[in-house]
């Protein structure tokens, strides 16, 4: 058997939207936030041992109310379902956090799954962001109904998305599967076209 040799070039990690220039229009912009590590946490909302273990590692409790997100010292936790959360963390700390969580969940019916590369996140912000989203997302995003740190798994036209309102701008982070990212970006950019003067 041959000896292992160093790869010819250092591996580069890339996302499906790398290199995309921001898209801007009157009152709305589409940008790429920094790449984040992403972990799916599985466990029961009603499993106190699980929620406590998660809170201990994350430094903040998981958001237990549906359609909400909670920011903690180690990242942002988004409610996906009664047994499922998405945690966005600094990419560099993702592996370590995953390991800590896995250790903390020992003996529990719980799971940690690294999905950092599965999903891409794009950021749509500005006073007209709601108008752009309304072109494909059936949710009522009126601030009385959907506000900062609300999140929802829903759809934009045919794409399944995880929508998170980041600030009152409003700014939204839109998470989508890798293979849909290019399409969704293109669709959103097209939806913004109406708000450009040329």
């Amino acid at each position: 058997m041959a000896e292992q040799q160093a790869p010819i070039t250092a591996p580069i990690r890339r996302g499906p939207l790398d290199g995309r220039a921001p898209v801007t229009a009157d009152g709305v912009s589409l940008t790429l936030p920094a790449f984040a590590g992403k972990l799916v946490l599985r466990g029961g909302s009603d499993d106190g041992a699980f929620t406590a273990a998660a809170a201990k590692v994350l430094g903040a409790g998981l958001p237990l109310a549906p359609n909400t997100a909670a920011r903690g010292p180690r990242g942002l936790a988004l409610w996906l379902g009664p047994t499922e959360w998405m945690v966005h963390v600094d990419a560099d700390t993702c592996d370590a956090l995953a390991a800590e969580l896995t250790a903390a969940f020992a003996g529990l019916h719980a799971a940690v799954v690294d999905v950092s590369d599965y999903y891409a996140v794009m950021r749509l912000g500005g006073p007209r962001a709601r108008d752009v989203l309304a072109k494909g997302c059936p949710l009522d995003l009126h601030p009385d109904r959907f506000d900062v740190d609300h999140c929802a798994q829903t759809r934009f036209v045919a794409s399944a998305i995880l929508l998170h309102q980041v600030d009152v701008g409003p700014t939204y982070d839109i998470q989508v599967r890798w293979s849909f990212a290019d399409f969704l970006w293109t669709y959103l950019a097209d939806a913004m076209r109406e708000f450009t003067s040329r």
């Binding site: 041959a2 047994t83 799971a111 999905v115 590369d117």
Partner: peptide
């Protein structure tokens, strides 16, 4: 007590097939 989580696109898969696949892979893996 089972959790199922889709990881389809978390993983890119390159499949090496053929009598020299081991030889090739050996040079690139620990």
């Amino acid at each position: 007590r089972v959790f199922c989580t889709s990881v389809t696109e978390q993983w890119a898969v390159a499949a090496l097939n053929g009598p020299r696949s081991r030889e090739l892979l050996a040079g690139l893996t620990d």
